[in-house]
Design a protein around this nucleic acid. Structure first.
Length: 227
DNA sequence: GCGACAG
DNA sequence: ATCTTGTCGC
């Protein structure tokens, strides 16, 4: 019997317990893609919150991996019970994303999260946790760094520079568009760095951020505004 | 002890 | 992330 998505652990945890969980869960990460990864559908995930907190609106937008056109979207609204703590973002966002995931019919072959993968203090960022939880290859693509240092990178689209942290290469700064600041890419689950960079560039043909992230952001923001 | 700190 | 006004550039 295969484990159903979301059955890794409960969400009623304290920040201290979350840190312990991360150390345990990271041992189950697979940092290489499946032998013959075929991606026909790729999805972005994001959440949108109210100013005071309370409800979080989360969702996925699934795109055709070739034309980048949306094929399905699913969302959910759940009370956010875990605070925003740098390094523990997944414990805040994944409960609502899991609810949205369960409403999704056409599951994607690859997921891109708005946050870090292994470029994380304990090598277990949002994309790692999300990919492991859902059992899908995943990539972290963040707008800013959580940990690590990067040397200046070239100005051309496609230029990269390693993200180094404690002597390890944990990700890559990637210029997806000339004249704008780079995005920070790192593997989540069932993924490696070269493949992650390749996909981020492929789904970011025009704007700084991947089309998956842009569409997911628009979708969940519309969800919140409509309520 | 002092900064840094995904979204 | 969200709250907010104007401003710069294609």
């Amino acid at each position: 019997m295969s484990e159903s998505a979301g059955a890794l652990h409960g969400w009623e945890v304290t920040p201290q317990e979350a840190v312990v969980l991360q150390a345990t869960l990271r041992e189950r990460l697979v940092l290489r893609p499946p032998p013959h990864l075929r991606v026909s559908r790729i999805a972005g995930a994001d959440i949108s919150t109210e100013s005071g907190n309370a409800l979080g609106y989360g969702g996925f937008v699934v795109l055709d991996a070739v034309c980048l056109r949306p094929v399905e979207q699913a969302g959910a609204a759940v009370e956010l019970r875990f605070p925003y703590v740098p390094g523990l973002l997944s414990f805040r966002e994944l409960p609502v994303l899991l609810a949205a995931w369960n409403r999704l019919v056409q599951k994607p072959d690859l997921l891109i999260f708005d946050g870090q993968g292994i470029a994380h203090p304990r090598r277990f960022g949002l994309a790692c946790h999300g990919g492991l939880l859902l059992g899908v290859p995943s990539i972290g693509c963040a707008k800013s760094l959580l940990v690590g240092k990067v040397e200046p990178l070239g100005e051309a689209r496609g230029d990269t520079a390693e993200i180094r942290h404690r002597g390890e290469v944990v990700g890559m700064a990637v210029r997806t568009r000339r004249g704008v600041s780079p995005v920070y890419v790192s593997p989540g689950h069932l993924m490696d760095l070269p493949t992650a960079v390749e996909w981020v560039l492929r789904v970011s043909p025009r704007y700084r951020e991947p089309e998956t992230t842009r569409q997911a952001h628009r979708f969940v923001n519309a969800l919140r505004t409509a309520e």
